[in-house]
């Protein structure tokens, strides 16, 4: 079995500038935030973020001027902390080109990519200005029901990164609880990376294979990153660290530097 374990820094370096990246999780929950920070540390530029409900991740990348495009359905910090301020500034300044979606329209695009077809139908959307804004097409039911359905083009991110609770060295990844859209994302992307809380043996995963969201053969590399979803939550291992999110939201370069230095991976790992 292949050993696909790399350091977080190696993983971030293997994602080129300009890549489109789908991040797992939703808002402050189950997202590969350590990898997002590592992209900032390596000075990434020109990234595209693809995620139905990004928040801290896209805000951090916008704050570091690392993201220039996004496909997103709703963007906020959540947890009573309001909108994502750096993301908002980047869109208002024209630094970040947004393709505004309705969450499921991103997923429908990913389902198309996962299924190997060029587009996919999605319910609803009629009456929304998003239809014309995004030049989405509609098709009449070719089987004659008379129903008109919106179709969206396939979305295949260059890279998917998810944060798992457990992984083995082969990249088999176990997720507890709800994986938001991680399943669809990992089937749609061209390259798949996993960060995981804990390294476990393949034999352990084989005891309950239904908990393995992602088989290792689909995975390019895995980094073991304890508290890798910080300052977000990872069910059932830890809750959101709201004090850290609030500290992150303090304006200024010094606050950002303090936040990056306070991250678990900055304190635990030697910088490879």
């Amino acid at each position: 079995m292949a050993n696909k374990i790399v350091s977080l820094a190696e993983m971030a370096r293997s994602i080129p500038d300009g890549s489109s990246i789908g991040f797992g999780g939703s808002f402050l929950h189950r997202a590969p935030f350590a990898l997002v920070r590592e992209l900032v540390r390596r000075g990434a530029r020109g990234l595209e973020v693809i995620k139905s409900s990004p928040g801290y991740d896209i805000d951090l990348l916008a704050r570091a001027h690392a993201v220039s495009r996004a496909k997103a359905g709703i963007v906020a910090i959540e947890g009573g902390l309001g909108l994502a301020p750096s993301y908002r500034r980047a869109v208002e300044d024209g630094e970040l080109q947004l393709e505004e979606h309705s969450c499921m329209t991103i997923v429908a695009g990913m389902r198309a990519a996962a299924a190997g077809v060029p587009f996919a139908p999605v319910a609803g959307v009629f009456g929304s200005d998003l239809l014309a804004l995004n030049h989405w097409k509609t098709v009449a039911d070719p089987y004659g029901s008379g129903k008109e359905t919106v179709v969206v083009p396939a979305i295949s991110p260059d890279v998917a990164v998810i944060h798992a609770n457990e992984a083995d060295a082969n990249g088999d990844a176990r997720v507890y609880g709800s994986p938001p859209w991680d399943r669809e994302l990992t089937r749609a992307a061209k390259r798949v990376f996993v960060t995981a809380e804990r390294l476990v043996s393949s034999a352990q995963l084989a005891q309950q294979p239904e908990l393995t969201l992602l088989p290792g053969f689909m995975v390019e590399a895995v980094a073991i990153v304890p508290r890798g979803a910080w300052p977000g939550s990872l069910h059932p291992d830890y809750d959101v660290d709201y004090a850290a999110v609030e500290a992150y939201l303090e304006p200024g370069d010094a606050a950002l530097a303090r936040h990056l230095a306070a991250a678990p991976e900055a304190r635990v790992f030697s910088r490879a």
């Binding site: 139905s52 409900s53 997103a72 359905g73 709703i74 963007v75 906020a76 909108l83 994502a84 993301y87 908002r88 869109v91 208002e92 947004l98 505004e100 979606h101 309705s102 969450c103 499921m104 329209t105 999605v122 319910a123 609803g124 959307v125 009629f126 009456g127 929304s128 998003l130």
Partner: peptide
């Protein structure tokens, strides 16, 4: 002002 976006509203509301 860039607002958060509607989430799944455009899909779900109709």
């Amino acid at each position: 002002v860039r607002l958060p976006g509607g989430g799944g509203a455009a899909v779900m509301m109709p």
